[in-house]
């Protein structure tokens, strides 16, 4: 079976000279397809950077990255654009939606960019599934944070990307909204979707199939189907060592 994401000796540095920081330091990682992987670690440990490199948004300094079985390091921008269009989906904490488009149009636009002839009914069905069937014509600023998050999920449901990347998708949500979003993600994964999610919330990580821990740009640990308490304990250990 193909891996959703593979890292082979990946390093990432920002800045040059004195100001140089090594954010990812020789990461080797393989995240299986069709599974939900959570990425955790102290603040500044390189989680977001890992996600961006995996999605081809940020070039790596050295090493190789594969997405859905294809090498995405050192390929031209045009290839990456096509990749983002068809293979990659995003859910972020903020900056999810185009402000001037309605919820429905936001979902439809992504599908159109992916080149799929998605019928209107499918777009509406997806929004209905995330519980926003009555908010089709609302613009992002007329939606709550959790609702915006769910529109982004509906977008992923319609475009069916090979890998869905989520950076703290529940970070700004209350526990009820967070649970809705996590339930939706679980539903997607059970339908065969690969998901890579960065989170600070052990409860959220416990819903995933596996948890990868980062510290100082290196993979520090990996747990499979952990309980929330187990995740929390490991996280505390890592943060203590970091200090």
């Amino acid at each position: 079976m193909r891996n959703a994401t593979e890292f082979h000796g990946v390093s990432k540095e920002y800045g040059r000279g004195e100001a140089r920081v090594r954010v990812l330091d020789g990461v080797d990682l393989a995240l299986p397809a069709g599974a939900w992987t959570a990425v955790m670690g102290p603040s500044g440990s390189g989680k977001s950077t890992l996600l961006h490199c995996a999605a081809g948004l940020e070039p790596v300094t050295s090493g190789r990255v594969l997405l859905d079985g294809e090498v995405i390091t050192g390929v031209p921008e045009g290839v990456l654009t096509g990749l983002r269009r068809r293979r990659v989906g995003f859910v972020f904490q903020d900056f999810n939606l185009i402000g001037s488009l309605t919820a429905e149009q936001n979902v439809a636009l992504a599908a159109k960019l992916a080149g799929a002839r998605v019928p209107r009914a499918a777009v509406r069905a997806a929004l209905g599934e995330v519980g926003l069937g009555d908010r089709l014509r609302h613009r992002p600023r007329e939606l709550s944070g959790g609702q915006r998050q769910r529109v982004a999920l509906a977008r992923a449901m319609v475009t069916r990307p090979a890998v869905l990347f989520a950076d703290e998708p529940t970070g700004a949500l209350d526990s009820a909204s967070a649970r809705t979003v996590l339930d939706l993600l679980r539903g997607l994964v059970d339908g065969g979707q690969s998901v890579v999610m960065v989170t600070h919330d052990p409860g959220a990580a416990a819903r995933a199939d596996a948890v990868v821990f980062l510290r100082d740009g290196r993979v520090a640990d990996r747990l499979v189907r952990p309980a929330a308490a187990q995740v929390a304990a490991r996280l505390v250990e890592l943060e203590e060592v970091a200090c």
């Binding site: 096509g82 983002r84 269009r85 990659v88 185009i98 992504a110 960019l113």
Partner: peptide, 11 residues
């Protein structure tokens, strides 16, 4: 907004 379009795969 423009950057978001790019992440969605707009060339």
């Amino acid at each position: 907004d423009l950057a978001l379009l790019r992440t969605l795969g707009a060339g």
